[in-house]
Design a protein around this nucleic acid. Structure first.
Lengths: 233, 233
DNA sequence: TCCCGGCGTTACACACGGTTACAAACCGTT
DNA sequence: AACGGTTTGTAACCGTGTGTAACGCCGGGA
């Protein structure tokens, strides 16, 4: 849901997913600890000691960047197969917070053990590095969208990306339930929640989607993608 | 110049710089190739084969994300000590373009050789990973600023960050020359160049800075930082 | 030296999205 | 079923930043 370029073009074709990792092999080196999460539960707070990465097994979480003066920015949403905490690598304390949007389960991967495991398993090292690079590309795609698209286009782009992520997980890209509130979506897209509401109803009016609160049905995929790209009208 | 949090707080205190790397040691493993660049010269284009990372030895470059429909977004500015190309790790082709803003020199680090060198030098591997994570944190700080600050505050924040980067390189944080045009600044800050101009003159009117085209003098550092934070007025 | 093109600045009208306010729908609790 | 709190939707107004245009400045080339 990081609004990365929707089409898997040649540049992103080889983006490695952490999901298809051999966890049985990994468990020989790293003690993987399962954690159940409930809605609104913090997985970690900004400022807490950084000790582990987290693999999302189920559910959906948001990562939130915080400023000293109280400003906050949702920097992404993570679902099954995504890795959490990589942004804090090299620090002693977490750079941001991670909050569960619904109940779910994450697998804790203690970082010191991961480091030694990386020395034994070059494949793991490559996957981790690839995950970091992929995160940078996602963020840059977000910058491009927020920097160049208007409110409606941003919302459309977001929905296209969400749909693609659901498709990758084997769910329907045509009909899904958003896991986050309007406020979270708005914050992520650098908009206000009223604006997101208006954009959603407008996309509904245009028969591109059918919305009912968090339930979204994609009626005109091509049209939605056209809207998500720079094309006006 | 990526508008990261200006104060080096406890969270960013251990951000590893690639600058203090032992290049003599690295040269035993990697054939470092020097490249001179002239203003407006592309170091690499989006879509070109990804074969190397680049260490900026002198000069200033911008990285530009491109969309199929022609939209473009400046994702950052790189100066001496910064690493270029890391966002394309794991891909066959570069994900973005890099353009020199002035004459300068970069050192090409062929990536396959870097990979093998990383296996021999754990310190190098750590530095590379840290550089990737640091990039993510910079991007998230940018998201926070663009998502929550108005035009004036963004420009102030940008100037504070530029000043900090110059200071780190041993130059004056009080008096410097911007290396990029208003258009590049504006694109990076998700504004229009006219808006950046107006913001600069307003910061000048407020006696926080003294501007004359690309020349900037910081008159009230604390005031500028206050403006760069969420504080209104 | 003059001319030209790129860059930066300024003025003004307008539009998009923010602000504010209120209402409706949903949720969990009692 | 009634209640309160939260989330979402709708509407009117307003302000920040944009679009447009004109002008000034500076540097490079003829």
């Amino acid at each position: 849901m990081n609004m990365q370029a929707e089409a898997t073009d040649t540049r992103t074709a080889h983006a490695a997913a952490f999901a298809d990792l051999d966890f049985d092999l990994l468990r020989r080196y790293v003690q993987v600890i399962r954690h159940k999460l409930t809605a609104d539960q913090y997985l970690y707070h900004a400022g807490q000691p950084f000790q582990a990465l987290y693999f999302v097994h189920s559910g959906c979480l948001k990562t939130v960047e915080l400023a000293d003066d109280g400003r906050d920015q949702v920097t992404g949403f993570r679902m099954r197969g995504d890795l959490l905490g990589i942004e804090s690598i090299g620090l002693r304390q977490h750079a941001c917070s991670a909050v569960a949007l619904e109940q779910g389960e994450v697998w804790e991967l203690p970082y010191p053990a991961m480091l030694t495991a990386c020395r034994e398993l070059p494949e793991l090292q490559a996957k981790l590095t690839a995950a970091l690079a992929e995160q940078i590309r996602q963020d840059h795609a977000w910058m491009l969208n927020v920097g160049t698209l208007n409110a409606e286009q941003r919302v459309a782009s977001f929905l296209v990306d969400v749909a693609a992520r659901y498709a990758r997980l084997g769910y329907s890209a045509r009909h899904f339930i958003l896991r986050m509130r309007r406020t979270d979506m708005a914050n992520f897209l650098a908009l206000k929640h009223e604006t997101v509401s208006r954009a959603m109803t407008r996309l509904d009016d245009l028969r591109l989607i059918a919305v009912e609160r968090r339930e979204v049905r994609v009626l005109d995929d091509a049209g939605l993608r056209r809207m998500a790209a720079g094309c006006a009208s």
